[in-house]
Amino acid sequence: MAKIHVTTTINGEPTEFLCEPQQTLLDVLRDELRLTGSKEGCGTGDCGACSVTFDGRLICSCLALGAEAEGHEIETIEGMAEGENLHPLQQKFLEHAALQCGVCTPGILIAAKALLEKNPDPSESEVRYWLAGNLCRCTGYDKIIRAVLECAADMRGA
């Protein structure tokens, strides 16, 4: 099986990797690049734990092939904080106890960040529908939704 050579950008860093044709972007991130912050909860696009952005668009990395990354820009949870500074959403999730086990958290943060970039003033309902593809089994979503709404308000005020 010939491997494919892919040149891409991940979290702003020019990155090259070799992958097999059937390897998903998630497989590549986790197994080849050791970026294990993106999680596999289902492998079928139903849980959102593997959420990344692909040229700024929110996607499930389990539903893209690694080979498709050629020439594109990928952002993962590992690129969300800037140096020592957490992204405001990361900080707000900590303050609001918006995570329990934490396994869905990277995906939810990536998704929430994509939301606020598109819509800085979402309603509760808009946040809930935007995040409907990110399953959380621990929190009942309450504190997650509050954290996103409050972070949006803070960021608008800033």
């Binding site: 294990t36 912050g37 999680k39 590992e78 990361q90 900590l94 303050e95 995570l99 958290t105 943060l109």
Partner: peptide
Amino acid sequence: TSPVRPDGTDKVTGRAKFGADLM
């Protein structure tokens, strides 16, 4: 009270190692 959890930063940055994350 509700202080920030000690393992929180690892869990919001993707650094926390779950079952499948060890190689």
